[in-house]
Structures are given as C-alpha cells and as structure tokens.
Design a binder for these strands. Sequence first.
RNA 1: GGUCUCGUAGUAUAACGGUUAGUACAUCGGGUUUUCAUCCCGACAACGCGGGUUCGACUCCCGCCGAGAUCACCA
Length: 479
Amino acid sequence: MDIVTRFAPSPTGYIHIGNVRSAIYPYLLARQSNGKMILRIEDTDRARYVEGATELIEDTLKWLGLDWDEGPIVGGPHAPYFQSERKEIYHEWARKLINSGRAYADPTPPEQIEEYRKKCNEEKIPFLYRNFRPENPPEWQPGIPLRFKAEPKEYSWHDEVMGDMHTGPEVLDDIILIKKDGYPTYNFAHIVDDAEMGVTHVMRGVEYLSSTPNYLALYEALGLSRPKLVSLPHILAPQGNKKLGKRDGAKSVTEYRDDGVLPEAMLNYLACLGWNDGTEQEIYTKEELISHFSLNRIQNSGARYDETKLLWVNGQWLRRIFDEQGARALYERTDGFWPETAANYDDEYRIKVLSIIYDRLKTLSDLSSMTSYFFSEPTTDIDMLVNNKFVKKLSESELEDLLKKTIAKLTSLQNWDANSLQDALNELLTETGKKPAELFSVIRIAISFAPFSPALNLTMEVLGREKTLARLNSTARTI
RNA sequence: GGUCUCGUAGUAUAACGGUUAGUACAUCGGGUUUUCAUCCCGACAACGCGGGUUCGACUCCCGCCGAGAUCACCA
C-alpha cells in the first residue's frame, strides 16, 4: 500500500512554529516511501477565514522545501482541494447517513441546547446531546444543522504514537456534521476528504485524540476503513506548560526566514523536536530526515520550544553550507541581509567579506551589523580605542608610536595578502616588544571601530592596502 | 467534574531488567598570537513520590502526586 499523507491547515493566519511540525512529519513519511503528500485547505469556517492566509501557508511550505503532490497550485485527481468548494461532496455523503438512519436534522435552537447543557452541569452529569435528541426531527434542508446519530459503545484503536487506546461509550455523542450554513464541520469534512483522497495516515495534533472515537464511529457508519492514526504531541511554549500558540508570541515560520534563519536549520530543528532516530546525530539534511524518519520514534510527550538551540542549529548550517558547498553557495542565501552600503560593491568583494565573517554568524541578519566597516568608513571613536582593556595599558606616546610603526611597516609591504600581512604583524610584534593583545587591539580598532572583527590579517587583506592605511593614518592624526 | 494522555539534568533526548544513567543545547571554567565567534578540553546537572514483582528496576504492575488535552453549528 502506498502511503498518502496530508497537511490540512485552516487559512486563519500564518503558520507558526507550534504547528508546522504537522506538515513536516507527514511530508517525511510520504517522501520516504515514495508516497504522496496532499495539501488541503480547510476553509469551512467562513468567519475565521483570513484573506491571503492560503498564500502564506504555501509560502511557508515552499520555503521549508516541503512540496506537495496534490493540492492548491499543483492540482490533482481529487480537486478541488479547498473544502469550501467541496460542499456537494459532503452533502452526498451526508445523505448516505440520513438514508441509513445515522443522521438527523436538528432544529433545536441554540438557546435550548445551552439550557440542556446548563442543566447537566448543575446536576453534575456529563452533557451528552444524544440524551436530548428531538423527538420528530424534520426532513433535512438548508438552514438546519445535521447531526450524527451516535451509538454508545466502546472503541479500541491503535495510535501510532500513543499506542493502544480504549474508551467507553460516554465519549460518543451526536456531533454536528453539517452546520446550518450548509458547510460541514471539521469533524465530518476531514473524514470524507481523507477517504476520497485515499489518505492512509492521518497525522495531526494530540488535541484530536479525545474526539477520535467519534471519528471511528463515523468511519464505521460510512462503511470506510480506518486510516492509520498518528497523534503528534504539542510543542510547548518557552514558559509554562501550555502548547505554543500565537498568544505566547509564537512567531510565524517566515519571520524566522526574514531574521536570517536558514530553511535547512528550521526543518532540522523542528523535525528533531520530539523525534530522534536513536543516534547522537544532531544535524540532518532533508534527505537524511526523510530516510531516517520513523513514526515509532516520535516522542509521546510535549517538547518545549527552545530558540537558543534553533540558533545553534542555524550556526551549524551556516558553516556547513560554506564548508561543503562553498562561499558562493552561502553567498546566494545572503540577499537582503547586507548593510545598505554593500550595494556599492560587487559580488566578489562581498563574497570575500562573507568568507572571513561567516563563522561568527548566528543568523544571516548578523551580517548587516557585523560587516558595515567593510562597506563604509567607520566613525572614528577614540574613546573606544583608548578605553579598550588592552590599549588602556599603553601611554599616549606608545600608542602613537605603535600606529606610526604599523603604518611604516605596512606601507613598505610588497605583497598585500593574508600571509604577508601576518608576517608583517609578527615582525611588528618582535620589533615593538608588545604583546599581541596590545598591538593587535590597537590596529584592529583603528581600522574597524567595531566591537569585534575577523582575524586581523584577513580583515586587512579584504579591506585592501589603500583603505587600511587611510584608516590607520586617519586614526593616528586624530589622537 | 467526566474521558484520555504524558512525567530522565534548566531544555531536547539516549538507555527498554544488570551502564560510573550516554549525548546535544544552555550555564560555568580552561586552551588556540587581539576582540567576537568557530574549534578543542573540562565542570556542574536528571530517572516526580510511594508501594509491589524480581537476585536485580529508569525500564514491568498498582496507587498517589504533578502537568496537559478534550468535552463548540472552531478547526
């Protein structure tokens, strides 16, 4: 049997890190078996519908590299993939249930239902709608909700993550199938769609675990075989024990993209939050995730979201891309992250800058603040120089002397390359008798006026003879 | 309240009857000719509690405690 999975979000806003995992796992499972991944938009709640949310969802999935075989944009044999366009299909299935006596139109006004509920609460008995079924339900017609007629019985099933499950009859109730506006509820629509689309593995958050018996009853009444059920534990907010949601400030996935997180890192981190392959590997490519993934190693308790670790994974990926695919490959990811003044320089120069700074980056957005002095003249800040903890030890005349000697040495330097520069620096060290910390700090700050920078010789090499000397001279004059 | 789920260091996890309870992030300390970072080395730090079963339990069973989910014409 070929595996068919789906990601079925509601277009109610952006996808945040608390809920992408229910797209990642189905994707991995489908890809590792040459199966299919379906994207289905569950937009039956017109009140919560948000304009543009579908595009946001598609955008997020594409960025993460999670492509789908059927769904919006790509189409497929089970189109349409928007539930709002599948009304007729749900109604057809609903009529089957009516005909078999397993669904009834319910004209009971909401206030009445509320009263039943209140009464049960007061009497401290569980509220089950099936105890309040209307006596002579009318024929089903637009404007009247359609309810399932539940049969109280026990259910047992296997959840691929949670294990063997069992519930008593008290959890089965007459759930709404079709709302009065004619649209189906999630409870009904997803069952019909999954069946029509041939979904073999239903993967979703654990919050659906409690309603599973009702779904099982529906499969039964519709004569459908059960798909494999996979409950995914929640991702927890950094504080507290609640699942991570927008209220906890859960950022959208694409916000991380804009903050300079690589999709590889995001996918890697999220996939490994609540899943591991049993080895001690931390960094996985998408291909590795696909081949190593397995349902039975999904954790069955919630996992806390830890942005620090995400950033660490991102750092690993930044270096990995540079080291394995080359400077150019990493450079191609840096669009939009450079300081504005970098626009005046060519790719070649920017690649050089990237090559000496990349291992200091946590995210690509660090690029902007960490490289500005390569693209524009830094503001001369003598205080920064003299207050430096190493430079502080030098007298004013020593400082002046060091700068002069450095300028003289570098001016006479024949080849302006990293090795020659390092040799020159070493010579200066022995000639002046200063400690590296003292001499190098002076030079480093004089040419960058930045809190930190790459190795001195590399910085000077990239900056070039002209600029390096100009900055040294300018600093020397200002003292 | 009913039903269901979960419980190893601060965090994510490994170990599935026998280990000094492993790894990673974080934290702290040290090393690599400046800084920041990388990289390397080291330290701190955990089986929720109580009963069983067993020669032996983080691992199996029971109870308790703690945490969460769900009880919508939302998904």
